[in-house]
């Protein structure tokens, strides 16, 4: 018997318990910018961005995984931000390669739309449209050495967010 049949054969249905449905009663009063500060991202205006990163690279489909490793600053578009935790939803369509937001040294994301919390975020996402997507909240970090927070573990060393209306 295959492992599949063996495993499924061992699983007896248990007493039925209903799925609780959509979560109701989530708080709404979250501040996206405050959450971004908590997760270690900075928010700048578009003119400030020009000053800080004049030589940044924009989305470019010709960049492959390995050539992206050479990129200092990459700018991409986020689909929306989540106010409760500063996360930004990104899909592979907005990136030159799936590894892009991880492998570049510094990341810039443009955000136009903000939803209050994760429940609204998944409502916004609806059906799956991309082969790969992620919530990204701040720069890469670790606290694996004595619980001291270090920014810039394997992914981008900094995250700069431009909120464009």
């Amino acid at each position: 018997m295959s492992a599949r049949d063996q495993i499924l054969g061992k699983i007896e249905p248990l007493e039925p318990i209903k799925h609780p449905g959509a979560f109701q009663g989530a708080s709404e009063d979250f501040d996206f910018q405050a959450s971004l500060a908590v997760v270690g991202a900075r928010v700048v205006t578009s003119s400030e961005l020009e000053e800080i990163f004049p030589g940044r690279r924009r989305y470019d489909k010709t960049l492959d995984g390995l050539s992206l490793a050479e990129i200092e600053v990459l700018e991409i578009d986020g689909e929306f931000g989540v106010a409760e935790n500063g996360a930004i939803w990104l899909t592979e369509e907005a990136m030159p390669h799936r590894v892009a937001p991880f492998i570049c040294q510094h990341l810039v994301i443009n955000v136009k739309k903000i939803v209050p919390h994760m429940h609204a975020a998944y409502e916004e996402l609806g059906k799956v449209k991309s082969g790969f997507g992620l919530f990204l909240a701040g720069p890469s970090k670790t606290a694996d050495i004595e619980q001291s927070l270090v920014i810039g573990a394997h992914g981008a060393r900094s995250l700069t967010v431009v909120i464009r209306s």
Binding site: V39, N85, G131, G133, L134, F135
Partner: peptide
């Protein structure tokens, strides 16, 4: 933390 830095959804 409010959320982990990366929550990656692998679909395809």
């Amino acid at each position: 933390q409010l959320i982990t830095t990366y929550s990656s959804h692998f679909h395809k």
